[in-house]
């Protein structure tokens, strides 16, 4: 594991730089032994472009995202997140953290108003799962037999991920995925919102309604906020493969039922194809995703955290 860049995740992407830009490289710092010797597979109609500049990526986002919500985007500039971009790269690895929770947060909120699209407890579980997925994705933890096991104590470059890993490592007894999901879901929404706030992707708006104050995290740039939506919606509707990051993100989307919004109106085989794509994730992540889906379902049955909601 290379030396961490503690602020890499927060410092670099300014408002002009979409959050997905660093993502193109995140497969690299945590190389998969199987992929090290591999050669680039033929890209889907496109040459591998590992050196594609961030500016290009940002431009793609700007063009693709704004008109995208709810319908397929014209995919003339290929989305940057293709496996060939980074998986087989022999370039020196850049330490970027896979900000899965940030993109799930974007999917779960309206891209201009920041209005939540998911029930709070489902969003909490989904974001908790995304935080665990970031660690599983980077092989800091593994999930076996329903338990979370810390395998690497190397501090992640991201502050929030560092905190979560610290919590996971700090528990002597070890807990089940479900326990961790329940625990992390209590604060995950706020934590991820704060991470987006630190990186300048959202701003806080508080509104006073009768007696309560509500806090909304409004995206600073709606095209950045809409990008995960546009990317997944387009690629899935066109039946194109997803890269590792987007596969996990799509899995989180399925577990929280968000795919019914993102793929609204898409034919049934698109959803079936989505589930098949998610099924190729490594065991740890698949276990995490199915436990998340189960936890979301159980929350409906038992009204977790809000016992007054069911009798």
């Amino acid at each position: 594991m290379q030396a961490p860049h503690p602020l890499a995740a927060q410092a670099t992407p300014g408002p002009a730089q979409p959050p997905h830009a660093p993502r193109g490289a995140m497969g690299v710092p945590y190389p998969d032994p199987r992929s090290a010797a591999a050669v680039p597979r033929p890209a889907a109609g496109r040459a591998p472009a590992p050196q594609q500049s961030r500016a290009t990526v940002a431009a793609v986002a700007r063009h693709a995202a704004p008109e995208s919500r709810g319908r397929p985007v014209a995919a003339s500039p290929p989305p940057p997140a293709h496996p060939d971009l980074f998986v087989r790269s022999t370039a020196p690895p850049r330490t970027r953290w896979p900000l899965l929770a940030d993109d799930l947060f974007r999917l779960a909120h309206h891209d201009t108003t920041g209005r939540p699209l998911l029930h709070a407890s489902v969003a909490g579980l989904g974001l908790a799962a995304a935080l665990l997925a970031e660690l599983a994705f980077t092989d800091a933890i593994v999930i076996e037999n329903g338990q979370v096991r810390v395998v690497s104590r190397t501090p992640p470059p991201d502050v929030l991920a560092h905190t979560v890993l610290g919590q996971l490592a700090g528990e002597v007894a070890g807990h089940t995925v479900r326990t961790w999901l329940a625990f992390l879901s209590q604060t995950s929404h706020e934590q991820v919102a704060l991470r987006l706030l630190r990186s300048g992707h959202v701003r806080v708006e508080t509104a006073r309604r009768l007696l309560t104050r509500s806090t909304t995290y409004v995206p600073t740039e709606s095209h950045v906020a809409a990008w995960p939506w546009a990317r997944l919606s387009t690629r899935l509707r066109q039946g194109k493969p997803l890269d590792r990051f987007d596969t996990v993100l799509a899995g989180l989307m399925v577990a929280t039922d968000l795919h019914r919004r993102v793929l609204d109106g898409a034919p049934g085989h698109v959803v079936a194809g989505l589930r098949q794509m998610v099924a190729v994730a490594p065991p740890s992540l698949r276990l995490l995703l199915s436990h998340t889906e189960a936890a979301v379902g159980d929350a409906v049955l038992t009204g977790h955290k809000t016992p007054s909601q069911h009798m």
Binding site: G146, R286, S290, A294, V296
Partner: peptide, 10 residues
């Protein structure tokens, strides 16, 4: 119930 999704991975 809702946990049937975890069956195949157990």
């Amino acid at each position: 119930g809702a946990n049937s999704v975890t069956t195949e991975l157990a």
